[in-house]
Design a protein around this nucleic acid. Structure first.
Lengths: 213, 213
DNA sequence: GAAAAATTTGACCGGATGGACAAACGTTAG
DNA sequence: CTAACGTTTGTCCATCCGGTCAAATTTTTC
């Protein structure tokens, strides 16, 4: 494991301004991707001049890297919490719900991540092959245990996890498409409630008709 | 409906070169997004000089627009075919399978589309709110009919469609992540076979345990 | 309140990028 | 052969963009 850089001493102003910049950078990066974003855009969104921004972050890359590291910490938290102590179906439902809440409450983070992956994950590939793979493998084992115990249907745990990621993050990443198709009738709250209900049913009950067969 | 531009007369060479360029543009755009791609990159990928490329396409925007229009025709084909003539579950399975095949065989098209949506669909929003919404609404009615007839479980047809899109396109859009997590053991063919099996089970049988409850 | 340190900004630089243009090159019809 | 047309390229331009720098301004420290 690479040792983390020694935490630089920062003044109060530095702390605040760096937060302000990261907030603005998240907004811009998540919308336009790394190459599609300009330092000027971020500086304007943060309400400061470009050189001033560059006083707090050495480079555009530096901002993106910092955002990414921070993102990955919170992004994997729900999966980490995924434990084999409780009832499997409850545990699964909780995970789906939390991932969906994250898509609702942190859509920019989701899109930032999606942008990075879409473009080949040039900056986070090692993390995917290391930390992420290890975590998923570990949780796949937990799920396999449930299957062995007959608690849930036998299937591929990895693809189960992928499908939960895909369906929940879809509501953040493809938000404009979802909104365009559903029309303006259903507000944001309603949309996510419907989605939660649907996904719960899909993953927990399935689409098999109840009445026959 | 806006009338299509009158088809310009083109020489054989123009036909061929335009195809060559679009192929290269798809490669580049799907990887780096619109703003992240340069005409030079596309020109090099197409094996010609930048001015030569610009002889066949007036601008970068022009290439992207052409690609997008072409993409949307083929992209919605599986959904259009989705009919209420056959057995609902068979119809659904067929749709899932075809979408997954498209993710496998046309990942660049999928990523091109994902890039566009991620960035707010600036160039195709009208199509989403018009053509796409109408088509989805129509198919949602078909699905609702199946539910009324007790052929499949009652649930939200729109979110069902979203979840099929999300899960299948995930294997194209998040391909690097999927590969990183699964490791090199499972080749491309195996991955998609596993995915097909899993998605079929998820959508058709559900995750409810068979043995008890 | 003055020195020192931290912050902010205008001006600037070099390279990349989208695109224009005219000249050169090829190809073909008569 | 040659005029006309289609194709290709070298050169050029204006703008954008990431980043630097020195000077100005503000804040902190003593």
């Amino acid at each position: 494991m690479t040792t983390a850089a020694p935490a630089p001493r920062r003044t109060r102003i530095q702390q605040e301004k760096r937060e302000l910049i990261l907030e603005a950078a998240l907004e811009v990066f998540s919308m336009h991707g790394f190459r599609g974003s300009t330092i000027d855009q971020i500086a304007e969104a943060a309400g400061m001049s470009k050189p001033n921004l560059l006083y707090y972050f050495r480079s555009k890359e530096d901002m993106h890297k910092t955002l990414m590291q921070r993102l990955l910490q919170t992004w994997l938290a729900p999966l980490r919490d995924f434990d084999n102590v409780g009832d499997p179906l409850t545990e699964l439902r909780g995970y789906i719900r939390r991932k969906l809440e994250m898509a609702r409450d942190y859509p920019r983070e989701s899109r930032l991540f999606a942008n990075e992956i879409l473009q080949g994950a040039p900056r986070i590939m090692p993390m995917l092959e290391g930390e992420l793979k290890d975590l998923v493998d570990e949780k796949a084992e937990v799920i396999k245990g449930w299957m062995r115990d007959g608690k849930i249907a036998r299937t591929d745990p990895w693809h189960l996890i992928f499908s939960i990621w895909a369906t929940t993050q879809h509501y953040a990443d493809f938000d404009v498409q979802v909104r365009a198709v559903l029309g303006p009738d259903r507000g944001s709250e309603g949309r996510f409630e419907d989605a939660a209900r649907f996904l719960e049913q899909l993953f927990l009950d399935g689409l098999r008709p109840r009445t026959n067969s």
